[in-house]
Amino acid sequence: MLLILSACSSHRPPVEQRSIGQRNNLEQPTAPPSTQARPAQPAAKPVPAVEPKEIAPDGRAYPQVHQSAATLRQSVVAKARSVIGTPYRFGGMSPVSGFDCSGLVVWVYETHGVDLPRTTWEQTRAGQAVPADQMHPGDIVVFKLGGKQPYLHTGIYAGGNTFIHSPRSGGRVREESLSGAYWAGRIHAIRRVIK
């Protein structure tokens, strides 16, 4: 046991970590005793800050975000807009083969490092709930559709009272207004996965 502890205490940190500490004046390097000129060492590459993952109410970890949330939201919307015109395909989740509604949402967020559940029902519980009057671009909009046998439908809020979704068989990914009576009256939930 004593041998193991002494091995841990004699461990030297990697050169890159020492260089970062020296660069931040946490350690002051001492001059070498030799008077001979030594070749200059290349500067260590800066290490990006690592932020701890935060846990969402549904138990999933929010992604490590190194850009502002507003920038990330706009990027999500831009990615969704980039596939407008892609055909609907039941079970589809790629711009090559097509998308169903929840597949589009999963694919867009996946390209930004956010892992979402696959089904519409599960997406209804992803992230945190927000009121409809406080939507931000990139929020997931869930609709309750149908009559006697209701079903759920998801899309991505794009800002300006519009959303992007893959509507139904025979349709294509498109951006539509939430102002119309059909969609506005059927909003079931708004879920935020980018804080």
Rank of each mutant, 00 (worst) to 15 (best):
L2D: 15
L3H: 15
S6D: 15
S6G: 15
S6E: 15
A7V: 14
S10E: 12
V15G: 11
V15P: 09
R18E: 11
S19L: 13
G21C: 14
G21S: 15
Q22H: 12
L26S: 13
E27G: 13
P29I: 03
A31G: 07
P33L: 15
S34H: 11
S34K: 08
S34D: 10
T35Q: 10
A37M: 09
R38E: 10
P39S: 08
A40N: 13
P42Q: 06
P42S: 08
K45G: 12
P46I: 06
V47G: 08
A49N: 12
P52H: 08
I55L: 12
I55H: 10
I55V: 13
A56M: 11
G59P: 10
R60W: 13
Q64F: 12
V65Q: 11
Q67S: 13
A69D: 08
A69V: 08
R73W: 05
S75C: 07
V76G: 02
A78T: 11
K79C: 11
I84L: 07
I84D: 07
G85H: 04
T86N: 03
P87Q: 09
P87I: 05
F90V: 12
V96S: 13
S97M: 14
G98A: 09
F99W: 04
D100V: 06
C101T: 08
V105M: 06
E110T: 14
G113C: 13
T120Y: 00
T124C: 10
R125V: 06
A126D: 04
A126K: 01
A126L: 06
G127H: 02
G127T: 02
G127N: 00
Q128N: 07
Q128I: 08
V130M: 03
P131N: 12
P131Q: 13
H136I: 10
H136R: 15
H136Q: 15
P137H: 00
G138H: 05
G138C: 05
K144E: 06
P150N: 09
Y151A: 08
L152K: 05
L152M: 09
H153T: 00
G159T: 02
N161F: 07
N161R: 09
T162F: 07
F163L: 03
F163Q: 00
P167Q: 04
R172D: 08
L178T: 01
G180P: 05
Y182F: 05
G185R: 04
G185K: 02
R186V: 01
A189I: 00
R191N: 04
V193I: 03
K195A: 12
